[in-house]
Design a protein around this nucleic acid. Sequence first.
DNA 1: CCCCAGGTCGTCA
DNA 2: TGACGACATGGG
Length: 275
Amino acid sequence: MNIKVSNFNLKDTVTCGQIFRFKEEDDLSYTVVLSDRVVNLKLEDDNLIVDSNNMDNIEEVIKSYFDLDFDYDSLNDKLIEIDSSNKEIIDACNGLKMINEPRVEVIISYILSANNRVPQIRKTLDNISERYGEKVLFRNKEYYLFPTVEKLKKVSIEEYRDCKAGFRDKYIYEMINKIDSGEFDINSIDNMDSVEAMEYLMKNNGIGEKVASCILLFGYHRFDVFPIDTWVKKYMKEKYNLEKVPEIRNFMKEKYDKNSGLIIQYIFNYSRNKK
DNA sequence: CCCCAGGTCGTCA
DNA sequence: TGACGACATGGG
């Protein structure tokens, strides 16, 4: 089926480091494992061609996951108004959307991201999914959904280690069990402002400032938090001669306030692609 | 064999 | 608070 889209940059949205479990196909379409199904997406002009093993409610599912109904244009205009040099950065990844990732998956994914490389994060997530997630057949190939908490609560620290989680094995184990017991309530974050939400997330082992902001940005659509990583640091050093994280944080907060997370993601993408 | 990765933790001052 | 080494894993 087709979905009419405008200003949607499928490639950058999928590949810019928000999500890990996707594959670029030979025809330049993207196969992505969502929470309850596998989808293949191909962009032809303003048509998003969607295929899936489960087409129920597919338009709503895709629009929600890829944030297609959110108005980015006016935010982008605002960012350019604040600093006209942002035009180059935004143009470089124009149409990039902030994905709405399933919450448990985004928490586990970014716990894994600490001191880790993207291919390794992906491999570990695939291992966990293959061992404990539901198998799905799509276009004659096997895929595995990210496991439910019901499944993961039975997984031991050693088993996470076997999935190559490394020293983060215990963090995942603890987090899943807190989610299962209700000690950590993934939905209570909706009722917190971002400062409270950061504190709530960072009470857990394995979640620091960087991981917490990724979780809020990609899992909770919070544009007022922003991860500061090596690529952003590099850009800030070159452009503004800012090196320390607190300095960068204050600078961005003052300059962009509620939209710092969005411009940071553009900067990340820009800086990383430029190499 | 060393270095590092979308960092965080524990420890020690 | 702030600095600093350790930490699993795998690729360069």
